[in-house]
């Protein structure tokens, strides 16, 4: 027997699963919409229950109605909490992703199939829509801007850089995705897929974090 709050619970179960995942699963547009609809239905019911009383409702005299109102109110509050917690779990995850340097493009690509990052044009991605809602995409963009502005205060330290002290100044890398040409102290390098380079670690750290390059050895 479905009852009020069941859909919200489903949403929270999604959030629970999200917590243990590396990537961000697709946004539950339908479910979110249904929960919001449920809240509106409940609100309408409350309004129609209260209508005959004209602002003179006495809970002690109308116990049964008061009880119904309380149940409806609690259901709405429950749904609100579920909705907020679901979105909060996702934004937490998004912030984490922004800090770790994944860019929005990657996030959109993830939805086709986590782990299949190199089959961007595979047959499975006919519906290559993002796993983020439009609002979340906006959030990521603005949060990224904020982070960039914050980092701008310190030019000599990279806040999102690796905390591991480098063992070697130069490393071998393999190119996983075409990344175009980059400029280094030692001239330009053209990063085409499957090629290998011996480069200065500091020059390519971000590209490694973004998944364009793979560190070897």
């Amino acid at each position: 027997m479905p009852m009020y709050g069941d859909l919200g619970n489903k949403l929270v179960q999604h959030a629970k699963r999200t917590q243990n995942l590396q990537h961000l699963p697709a946004y539950q547009t339908e479910l979110v919409r249904s929960v919001a609809r449920e809240v509106r239905d409940l609100d309408r019911e409350v309004a129609s229950l209260l209508e005959p009383f004209q602002d003179s409702f006495d809970p002690a005299a109308e116990q049964a109605t008061a009880c119904t109102l309380l149940v409806n109110h609690m259901s709405m509050r429950r749904n609100k909490r579920c909705l907020l917690a679901y979105h909060r779990t996702r934004t937490d995850k998004l912030e984490e992703l922004v800090w770790s340097g994944s860019d929005l493009l990657d996030l959109a690509g993830q939805q086709a199939g986590p782990g299949a990052a190199n089959s961007m044009n595979g047959p499975g991605d006919s519906n290559s829509s993002s796993s983020l809602s439009p609002q979340e995409e906006d959030y990521v963009r603005q949060y990224g801007d904020l982070l960039a502005a914050y980092k701008g205060h310190w030019t000599d330290i990279d806040l999102t850089g690796s905390l591991e002290p480098p063992r070697d100044l130069f490393i071998d890398v393999r190119v996983l995705k075409d990344a175009g040409e980059i400029q280094t102290e030692y001239g330009a390098i053209n990063l085409t897929k499957n090629s290998q380079f011996y480069v200065r670690q500091g020059d390519v750290e971000r590209l490694i974090a973004q998944g364009y390059l793979q560190k070897l050895g």
Binding site: G5, V12, Q19, Q63, A64, T68, R78, A85, R88
Partner: peptide
């Protein structure tokens, strides 16, 4: 408020007995 596990705990059901007639709540 945002703790997922706490929200899931709140979904656990406990047996209750109603103390009054409520016309609108038959669906429960």
């Amino acid at each position: 408020y945002y703790d997922i596990d706490s929200i899931l705990t709140d979904a656990e059901k406990i047996p209750c007995t109603f103390q009054l007639d409520v016309p609108e709540l038959g669906y429960l």
